[in-house]
């Protein structure tokens, strides 16, 4: 789409069209859209002079990138070591049950995307879940219901 192209141009200009900035460019595109639209990648390929296949190589290698649109609300469950020994797997079970999606998936109504992350730097609260930037320490089933219901 035109908008993807314009946005990509703007980002690439920021890096002066430098080939080696590919990962930084993709991170910015991901940040703006929460995923990497194909049109944006094709434009990046054109502007940076990097084959599309190579761009896909990078985009699929790193965890930060998503090639699918993401839901309106992002839910992350920490599976860092500290949270793990404090029962993160059980929290994850509860969350997948509640949202009816597995880590890495987005619900059909585009309401939620679920992912697992490593240490968030707040192990004292572990096991931790983050919803749209809000931290929740070891939420119970009831609390999960309340949290999920608050998300449009």
């Amino acid at each position: 789409m035109v908008q993807d192209v314009a946005q990509t141009d703007e980002i690439i200009d920021k890096y002066k069209g430098d080939k080696s900035s590919l990962i930084q460019v993709l991170l910015d595109i991901q940040h703006e859209n929460r995923w990497l639209p194909r049109d944006a990648l094709m434009r990046a390929s054109q502007r940076l002079g990097i084959p599309l296949s190579q761009i896909y190589h990078v985009a699929t290698f790193y965890k930060a990138f998503s090639l699918m649109p993401r839901g309106r609300h992002s839910v992350s469950v920490c599976l860092g070591t500290a949270c793990q020994v404090r029962g993160a797997p059980r929290l994850l079970d509860k969350v997948t049950e509640k949202l009816e999606i597995e880590p890495g998936e987005t619900s059909e109504d585009m309401r939620f995307s679920l992912e697992t992350v490593n240490c968030l730097g707040c192990c004292a609260l572990g096991p931790v879940m983050v919803v749209d930037g809000e931290y929740h320490s070891s939420p119970s089933r009831k609390e999960l219901d309340v949290i999920a219901d608050a998300c449009e």
């Binding site: 080696s20 590919l22 990962i23 930084q24 993709l26 991170l27 190589h57 990078v58 290698f61 790193y62």
Partner: peptide, 23 residues
């Protein structure tokens, strides 16, 4: 340089290839 999330990219030679914008 922001790393895009890969444990192995913390290894020295891998980190340097990533700085060059490659996998």
């Amino acid at each position: 340089h922001r790393g895009a999330g890969a444990f192995v990219s913390g290894e020295s030679s891998a980190l340097m290839t990533a700085i060059e914008g490659r996998v």
